[in-house]
Design a binder for these strands. Structure first.
Length: 812
RNA sequence: GCGGAUGUGGCGGAACUGGUAGACGCGCUAGAUUUAGGAUCUAGUGAGCUUUGCUCGUGGAGGUUCGAGUCCUCUCAUCCGCACCA
């Protein structure tokens, strides 16, 4: 073996080998237990960044570790290759988004291979490829035919910079998540997927799902936003207008001193007609329209409103209370209208104070610490001023009783509301999957015939269309025949949100070349859910929630029998540089590719695993990678030395036993660490073992042949998942076979225990002495040792605590 | 405001069911080697002190215990997510 660790040569050699090897070609029908290991497929930006490196290194450790544990591992890779950057580049440079994208895929793929990760490239899929988006369209039509996709006029979020609408999930603090531009409300006819139909199921599923990070589950729960309460009707006095209000606090109903309706409520025009102050209302509504969404939603903003001069009747007291229009009531939550109870709701309180509306207290806290003259009381207490309901406990008891009253009098009922809205998937952009629907004047909205799929993206020259989708500029595309009556008809010109593509890519990986259907259901039922999904936390809501919805929808359409797409989820933390998230605009990118040249893929992988627990965010540090490079050099030296040791048939020497014990301990420890995703400590175990091996090799230069084989085999396999190139090379050099076919080592229980340990002698709980003694000695012997060595007198001890093989504590 | 998480040397971080705090690595100091630098090797490296040893020390304050980074109560700080959700 070469005395120098020539990582460039070795890494190239093994990467070429893996590209063509059968090691990771997954036969879905093998007898071995299955393990679907998946890293989130990347958007092909052109270059790997450190986040990808971390993601794929973790994934590859799992792939190789599970393979050695006898699993049939499926590890595919593909491209989330529709999306805005390619189109924006096309606008700038004129290069077609397809060409742009495919160039970047090629570049990124070569970098992924350069990292040394194993993927079954025969299964590679790309969202923009015709044989992929054909099936995206197919599934969309299935959803449409089953009323899970629909088109509707709706107020939507428009990003003027990206020139498209956005899903609620893509709006962060009132701004576009991509470009930070403040979104504008617009009323547009748009496509939605009915995710809200699955609100309850998506929520409940989180309790039964496999191992997911708690914060991701919580974020999804909050996003779904379930709340339970009552809904009842209010009638506007002197009119036949009625509207519903939703409340989680029916126990405060006697305290309702006004009602509020949202400025966008569907009754708003009729209310205005009935009002004495029509002009004032009109002025108010105009002032609202001019405000940005973010401005309106901001909690710091003072609430505004206008009195309609109309009254509604409190259904339980029959008291007449004023009806207001106010912007703090959101049209798209609940019913878009509320009963206002200022005494017991902070928002209503603030509003009532500002406009001098009556505040009527109906719940009193037992300690009487809160005075509703000064602040709202939102806690638990006892009902007052509430007629027959006085003295009941709020919330539960009183809410239940009052709700019963509403039901009995046919005014209202229990109601559960969710914050989750339907998923808006229309995008007015070019580089996405065309929505395969056709508008016929006579037949209405119809899906393209299955046999005509895919609806191909047209070739166009101008990607900018200020009023509508770029696709509408292609006459050939837009003008078509009605699938039903064959008359002239028009195609939909919007494309789909790329999250539709990524909602099912992990299904296509199971059957990527199927020409007849998106996938064979048998494969799905057998291979889903994904056993281990690994990716960044930025997808906690978007992609992960959409995919969970997709599986349920397709299940109900008969495509599969599973409920959840991803059993275990691991979210890796972000890698920062200079205290900030790496980004091109900040100019603080650390380019992983340069480290392939200067340190090698193995050193980079090892460092990225070693630098921190993988779920923590961490600061990039150049010095750290020097450390893992140094480790690999020393490791190589040790391997050369041990291979060069002369064989003897001598019985074991004491240092032989010691190194054997260390190896057994390390097998146990690394196995446990890998199972728990504690890669940083797994690497540190390897470093320790390497240090021990250095000490061992200093002592003499002979070794028993079986021990030599066992040391080499075990230590190389332990390193292999994390640094596969160097481990493969040395293993092949010495054993003349491929390490990837080896079994993960087991440890020998009898060879774990150290023969001696350092006994700690404490006096009153403080460490006073320490001494190396034989493992397993009992209390009497330990006491004797204490007396002989340290002159400790046990006769006046109040208490003696003895922990076997650890310590003795003498309390005086 | 609500929810989730995290606080340990100069730095990244270890510490199994309460049992020697600081493993492993970076950095730093000294020495060896080298024409020099780099690389490598050896030793040291939580703080303080009256340095054979003692005291303090895991964000802070209490508590339980023979013994607390770990358990309990309160509190402070930072990060992330949601945010007028009725």
């Amino acid at each position: 073996m070469n005395n120098q660790f020539e990582y460039k040569k070795i890494e190239k050699k093994w990467q070429d080998h893996w590209e063509n090897s059968e090691t990771v070609k997954c036969d879905l029908e093998s007898d071995k237990p299955k393990f679907y290991n998946l890293c989130m497929y990347p958007y092909p930006s052109g270059d790997l960044h450190m986040g990808h490196i971390r993601n794929y290194t973790i994934g590859d450790v799992i792939t190789r570790y599970k393979q050695m544990n006898g699993f049939n591992v499926l590890s595919p890779m593909g491209w989330d290759s529709f999306g805005l950057p390619a189109e924006n580049a096309a606008i700038k440079t004129g290069i077609h988004p397809r060409e742009f994208t495919e160039e970047r895929i090629a570049n990124m793929k070569s970098q992924i291979i350069r990292l040394g990760s194993l993927y079954d490239w025969d299964r590679e899929v790309a969202a923009h490829s015709i044989d992929y988006y054909k099936w995206t369209q197919y599934l969309f039509i299935k959803l449409f035919e089953n009323n899970l996709a629909y088109k509707e006029d709706a107020p939507v979020n428009w990003c003027n910079s990206c020139r498209t609408v956005l899903a609620n999930e893509q709006v962060i603090e009132g701004s576009c998540e991509r470009c930070d531009t403040a979104v504008e409300p617009k009323n547009l006819n748009q496509w939605f997927l009915k995710i809200s139909e699955y609100s309850e199921e998506l929520l409940e599923g989180l309790d039964e799902i496999g191992d997911w990070p708690e914060n991701v589950k919580t974020m999804q729960r909050n996003w779904i936003g379930k709340s339970e309460g009552s809904q009842f009707e209010l009638n506007i006095i002197g009119t036949d207008l009625t509207f519903d209000v939703f409340t989680t606090r029916p126990d405060t109903l006697f305290g309702m001193t006004f009602a509020v309706i949202s400025p966008e409520h569907e009754l708003i025009n009729q209310i205005m007609e009935q009002s004495d102050k029509k002009d004032e209302i009109q002025n108010y509504l105009d002032s609202i329209v001019n405000k940005s969404e973010f401005e309106r939603m901001s909690i710091t903003k003072e609430k505004t409103g206008v009195d309609t001069t109309l009254k509604v009747t409190n259904p339980i007291t029959n008291v007449e209370v004023p009806l207001w229009i106010a912007d703090y009531v959101l049209v798209n939550y609940g019913t878009g209208a509320i009963m206002a109870v200022p005494a017991h709701d902070e928002r209503d309180y603030e509003f009532a104070k500002k406009y001098n509306i009556e505040i009527r207290q109906v719940i009193i806290d037992k300690e009487k610490t809160i005075n509703v003259d000064n602040e709202a009381f939102t806690g638990n207490g006892v009902l007052i001023n509430s007629g027959d309901f006085n003295e009941l406990n709020s919330h539960e008891e009183a809410s239940k009783k009052i709700n019963d009253f509403l039901v009995k009098n046919k005014i209202g009922d229990e109601k559960t509301t969710y914050r989750l809205r339907d998923w808006l998937i229309s995008r007015q952009r070019y580089w996405g999957c065309p929505i395969p629907l056709i508008n016929c004047d006579d037949c209405g909205l119809l899906p393209e015939k299955y046999e005509n799929l895919p609806v191909l993206l047209p070739e166009i020259k101008d990607y900018i269309n200020t009023d509508g989708s770029p696709l509408s500029k292609s006459k050939d595309f837009v003008e078509t025949d009605c699938p039903k009556c064959s008359k002239k008809a028009l195609r939909e010109t919007d494309t789909m949100d790329t999250f539709v593509d990524s909602s099912w890519y992990y299904m296509r990986f199971l059957d990527p070349k199927n020409d007849n259907e998106p996938f064979e259901s048998d494969f799905i039922n057998e291979w889903l859910p994904v056993d281990q999904y690994i990716g960044g936390v930025e997808h906690a809501i978007l992609h992960l929630l959409y995919s969970r919805f997709f599986v349920r929808a397709l299940r109900d359409l008969g495509f599969m029998k599973i409920d959840e797409p991803f059993h275990n989820l691991f979210s890796q933390g972000m890698i920062n540089f200079g205290g900030a998230k790496m980004s091109k605009s900040k100019g603080n990118i650390v380019d992983p590719e340069s480290y392939f040249a200067t340190h090698g893929a193995d050193a980079l992988r090892l460092y990225i695993l070693f630098m921190a627990p993988p779920s923590d965010g961490v600061e990039w540090n150049d010095g750290g990678i020097e450390g893992t490079k140094r480790f690999l050099n020393k490791f190589w030296d040790n391997m050369v030395k041990i291979i060069d040791q002369k064989d003897t048939s001598d019985t074991f020497k004491s240092n032989d036993e010691e190194i054997e014990r260390k190896i057994n301990q390390t097998i146990k420890s690394i196995t446990q660490h890998l199972e728990k995703f504690e890669f940083n400590t797994a690497v540190s175990d390897l470093m320790k073992l390497n240090n021990d091996l250095s000490d061992y090799l200093k002592e003499d230069n002979t070794i028993q042949i079986d021990l030599k084989d066992s040391i080499l085999r075990n230590i190389l396999i332990l390193l292999y998942p994390m640094s596969p190139h160097i481990a493969s090379e040395i293993f092949q050099d010495y054993f003349d076979r491929d390490i990837s076919q080896e079994k993960w080592p087991t440890f020998d229980e009898t060879k774990l225990e150290n023969p001696v340990y350092e006994l700690v002698i404490q006096i009153n709980g403080k460490k006073r002495h320490a001494l190396i003694v034989n493992t397993g000695i009992e209390e009497d012997e330990v006491k004797e040792i204490c007396t002989t060595n340290f002159d400790i007198d046990f006769s006046n001890a109040k208490k003696v605590i003895f922990i076997k093989d650890k310590l003795i504590n003498i309390v005086q």
